[in-house]
Amino acid sequence: MSTDAPHTGQLPDDAEQGTSLWADAWARLRKNRLALFGLGVIIFLCVVSLLTPWIAPYGYEQQNLALGATPPSWQHWFGTDIFGRDLLTRVMWGGRMSLMVGFVATGVALVIGVLWGTVAGYAGGRVDAVMMRLVDILYALPFMIFIILLMVVFGRNIILLFLAIGAVEWLTMARIVRGQVQSLRRQEFIEAAHSLGLSRWRIIRKHLIPNSLGPVIVYTTLTIPSVMLLEAFLSFLGLGVQPPESSWGLLINNGVETMEEYPWLLIFPGLALAITLFSLNFLGDGLRDALDPRSSKD
């Protein structure tokens, strides 16, 4: 049955196009300069990361031991490290890894969290109680120690890193989605859908999911920075990505060791991480304001 998009048929010629809530939200977001700036930075970083293998000024492992550590210059915009490697190149490669961890682990959290939350919220009753009880138990785990433990015990493995971080972050996502679905379930338009005799699947697909998407998008945007932070933290401890792979956390860790002599080795990777986190957080905040139905009333 293909009744999903009944947009065809003869509508009156002079029908005015309505503005959906999404269009409204986009219009509001466009007025938020900080959020737009954030969005721009994120797009820029993604493009640079994708193109890094082709546009990086130097080879990733290209050493120049004779040069050693030099401060920023025309040849090396971010300076070089103690092996004479170009820092800009290394920051670009590190960003590639950090962004990838951020997006993939958030994706893992998103999938698990949304599924878990929707099922719990829609099923309700005992199923919901058991599922959310489990989330509560997981919340009580000292996760930081747990991840460290996993990394130490099973070796530093990037897949494991994704899974471990995803496993922490999905909990909050599940709670948010469940809360959203639960409050929607009591709304009269869902009751109206029931009284129209719609199937359960159609109600979930056409009525529940589109209306719970807003908070999910916002939370996703805000999860990416916290995931990147977690990865950087683990790399800083020497437990995340391992050389020769690189990430901003690892670069910061290396920078700290030599910060007295060569502060730029700490400052540039630090700045890169901070600016990215900034942009994502501003974008997330902006999306929250834009998608909040309460702000649409004035």
Binding site: F236, G249, G255, L266, G270, L273, F278, N281
Partner: peptide, 17 residues
Amino acid sequence: MIGICLPSFLLGPLLVL
């Protein structure tokens, strides 16, 4: 927001520096 975006492993060394 700056406080949130500067994790302790970055802020600490910067303060020390």
